[in-house]
Amino acid sequence: MDIYSILFWVLSVMAVGCALGVILSRNPVNSVLFLILTFVAISGHYILMNAQFLAVVNMIVYAGAIMVLFLFVIMLMNLNADVEPQKGQMVQLAGVISGGVLFLIILAALKTAATIEVNPTSTDIGLIGNLGKVLFKQYILPFEISSVLFLSAMIGAVVIGKKEPGQDLPRSEEKAVQQ
């Protein structure tokens, strides 16, 4: 076992274990922290595969910005108490079975696919200089379109999140109590 395989297995166990922690922990704050650990493990995999730029972006954008946004919303709603009503036992069992069946089917279908050994020698395709050249030469149009997407998402988030005037929600609160 060389160092590459050892790191691969350690990071894989960490990623899968923390992903299980996300869906099994009762407290939403614990789920967010487990998801951050999963992203850290995935960033470790990126570094193992010489994708340094993506590893850094994954840490900054996902583990930094997006998960802090999740944590902020959870704290804002005061959901860190364990108030989530559980689905029925049968529904949970059905969810686990359908996910497991999907896993087994694709596993069985791809078990005999061609294996190419991942070469641990270092390459420079994942460095920021090379990626920037490809991005601004071949993918300049999607890059510009994604900036428009960002702008529209920002405006959409502001419009959706804006408080409507005269909305004191006695009616909907009554409905929530009824349910």
């Binding site: 894989s12 999963t38 969810g95 896993f103």
Partner: peptide
Amino acid sequence: VTSLHYLFLSLLLFSIGIMGTLMRRNAII
């Protein structure tokens, strides 16, 4: 470590995501 290892690792993570989507009731989770 071959490409199949990465394939099955990401497949496992994807299946865990699907299980969580079907199991939980909290919209944020």
